[in-house]
């Protein structure tokens, strides 16, 4: 499990989570926006995520709520097939905005 962090703009954070997104990743993922109060928009690239468990889902929701609180949004970009299945089975796809690519996500973010 690994994570890359980039900041396409001062207010936008892009996280690329590779491998398992589970309890072991939670602190690292959350600290990426908790340590940056200036971040409003969060894009989570799950294209290389092989599995997401309930703690990973809870972390996405924490990010979603925090982004909204700051006046921004959280977008999930290009989830891998396994992750898509989990998001569907848990009906999380009704709560999260899922877009096909990071570029698409960033284009939506600039509209905020």
């Amino acid at each position: 499990m690994e994570m890359d962090i980039s900041h396409p703009s001062d207010s936008t954070l892009v996280l690329n989570i590779r491998g398992r997104f589970d309890a072991y990743m939670v602190d690292k993922v959350k600290s990426s926006w908790q340590s940056r109060p200036d971040i409003k928009n969060i894009v989570v690239d799950l294209s290389e995520t092989t599995f997401i468990d309930s703690m990973g889902l809870a972390t996405l929701i924490s990010g979603l709520k925090e982004a909204r609180r700051r006046g921004g949004i959280l977008l999930v970009a290009n989830p891998a097939e396994m992750v898509q299945v989990i998001l569907g089975l848990t009906a999380m796809d009704r709560a999260l905005t899922i877009v096909p690519t990071v570029e698409e996500a960033l284009s939506q973010v600039t509209d905020v």
Binding site: S54, L57, I61, G88, L89, T90, A91, M92, R94, A95
Partner: peptide, 11 residues
Amino acid sequence: WTATAPPIGVL
């Protein structure tokens, strides 16, 4: 029968 709402505490 799959979930028809996200988990409790989400929305």
